[in-house]
Design a binder for these strands. Sequence first.
DNA 1: TTGGCATATTCCAAAAACGGAATATATTAA
DNA 2: TTAATATATTCCGTTTTTGGAATATGCCAA
Lengths: 125, 125
Amino acid sequence: MAATALTTAEIFRAIAEPRRREIIDILVEQNDLPVGDLVQRLRLPQPAVSKHLSVLRKVGLVVVTKQGQQRLYRLNPQQLKPVHDWIKTFEQYWTRSLERIKLRAERAALERKNATPKPSRNQSS
Amino acid sequence: MAATALTTAEIFRAIAEPRRREIIDILVEQNDLPVGDLVQRLRLPQPAVSKHLSVLRKVGLVVVTKQGQQRLYRLNPQQLKPVHDWIKTFEQYWTRSLERIKLRAERAALERKNATPKPSRNQSS
DNA sequence: TTGGCATATTCCAAAAACGGAATATATTAA
DNA sequence: TTAATATATTCCGTTTTTGGAATATGCCAA
């Protein structure tokens, strides 16, 4: 569905920010942290942290619970699954040996060449 | 080193663009494609495709070889490894059963609570 | 050399992202 | 109620990104 695809794109954009990945890295090892702790550890002005948290919240990467006057942020890693699914496709390219990859690529190239002569088609018509 | 970290950030930004991920998806299943083929399959204006390819080229995600008047683009998946390494940390959260995760989280929370009473410290000084 | 095809680059305007400063909101304490 | 603390939001100026149109470059064929 389109909604899911859109969310996925937003997730990718959300984690494209180095600071936001830092926040995620902190939250994965220590959940339910108040904003103040993140401010301390990131050495960023509080509004900056809150803004990054806002982005992460909107795409569901973190969830908040109120505790007194502070807000505890918890990572919601499920939202990273689409990214993992996408990147997993390429795993083979560095887990397998270089020789295998080369062979595989060459074999594939050969098959392609034999199947279709590839007449350098561009926008025909 | 700083150079590597910078590149990693650039990789994340490069794949944040949906069209560029599409390009990568196409190239992973069929390597050494001329730009014209990508234009066809993406249904995008040629300059747009060339610009996206330029971004991917700059971060090393694709490499070009000249063949006559056309440029063949090939995916260089190695550059995706940092992304994979990062996302892999979270794999456990959806591969393991929900019960285990819950238990793990609760156990961790308990340990934390017992270890440090967490005196709601903010910027003290 | 000229013309045509494939691709890249530049220029431009619009949109989005970002940091910093100020301010608003919510909650607790006095 | 007032003050203080924790956090969120808004405003603003700057930079980055993006798409579209036009143009440039590179290469081949005639």
